[in-house]
């Protein structure tokens, strides 16, 4: 043979799939929610998104190139996804330097020191968000509506529904009073609520998630477990005392429950591989999130719940395996 043919072990063909393509699908799935939030919150929101994504990408590029001295992983778009998710967890009125700090924590603390993509224990975007939440609580929960391109939300409060609720409860009002005072109904919650960017429209988030399901990027078990557990816990407590504990719809549609369950809890790297491991992981997130909401001092527990359950993933991966062929 004159021509040098390729020789390699089988298989000789590969599915049309790559990390980049998966990340691209995630980005596409986030688009509806991004679109809604940009329309609702205008230039401010767009700037937050841009700064977040640009910082994440630049930081990843710089650290891999100058500090880790290895081929850059910017091309796989995972930094873009982290940047988007981080931005969607932030209020649109947040100062941009805080966004940058969030990106630094996400990329340079949560992701790259562990070895980069695939090696991190904690979800980078959530780590960044929680860091900001703990360090800058005022800026993170105080929501001043920025001027949107179209008027979607007519929320008048300066904070997210959950923090408003927490304050109301402290001052002695009951849930039905609160709901009525702010005009929250299932219909308004489903469409639009005043909250951080990513929480604004449940429909947009669900639309994106359906795209991921159709593209077989994720499986539905983890989100189902998260939302199912949250609904169950809310139903029980709401049933016991509807004056103190919020109901099922309110909990599922506020405070980033959907964004967390659909897009953050399903992060490949920081969730278990097996179906049953995923169900337990999801149930744990739902339970912890609800406990924080009902009994914690923070109004919102999704991020903490995901971070806490991230710790259990290695253990869940060790305990739960796939069913093997021909073995009991």
């Amino acid at each position: 043979m004159d021509k040098k043919y390729i020789v390699s072990p089988s298989p000789h063909i590969h599915a049309d799939i790559s990390t980049t393509k998966i990340m691209r699908d995630v980005i596409i799935a986030l688009c509806p929610a991004i679109l809604v939030s940009v329309l609702a919150y205008g230039w401010a929101e767009l700037l937050v998104l841009l700064v977040s994504v640009a910082s994440c990408v630049l930081l990843e590029w710089a650290v891999t190139k100058w500090m880790m001295k290895r081929p850059s992983t910017v091309g796989d778009l995972s930094a873009v996804v982290t940047g988007l998710l981080l931005a969607m967890n932030l209020p649109s009125a947040i100062p941009l330097w805080i966004v940058f700090i969030g990106a630094v924590v996400a990329i340079c603390v949560a992701k790259l020191p562990f070895g980069g993509i695939g090696q991190n224990v904690f979800n980078p975007a959530i780590t960044g968000r929680v860091f900001l939440l703990v360090s800058f609580p005022a800026q993170m929960t105080n929501w001043t509506p920025t001027r949107g391109f179209i008027q979607i939300t007519d929320a008048v409060s300066g904070a997210t529904p959950l923090s408003v609720l927490k304050e109301s409860l402290k001052s002695g009002s009951t849930i039905p009073e609160f709901m009525e005072a702010h005009g929250y109904t299932t219909a308004t919650l489903l469409q639009d609520i005043g909250a951080s960017a990513g929480e604004i429209s449940a429909i947009a988030l669900l639309l994106g998630f359906v795209y991921l399901l159709v593209r077989r990027v994720v499986k539905p078990w983890i989100p189902l477990a998260v939302l199912g557990t949250m609904a169950l816990v809310a139903a029980i407590f709401h049933g016991i005392n509807p004056d103190v504990y919020t109901g099922v719809e309110f909990n599922l549609l506020t405070g980033g429950a959907l964004l967390g369950a659909l897009f953050m809890a399903t992060d490949y790297v920081t969730s278990p591989m097996s179906t049953w491991g995923g169900v337990i992981y999801g149930a744990g997130i739902g339970l912890i999130a609800m406990m924080i909401r009902y009994f914690g001092s923070y109004p919102e527990g999704m991020s903490f719940a995901i971070l806490l359950m991230n710790c259990t993933v290695p253990l869940l991966n060790m305990w739960f395996h796939q069913k093997k062929y021909g073995r009991a």
């Binding site: 043979m1 040098k4 390699s8």
Partner: peptide, 8 residues
């Protein structure tokens, strides 16, 4: 070289 190896 008579061929090109492309495996691990």
């Amino acid at each position: 070289r008579t061929n090109e190896y492309d495996g691990v």
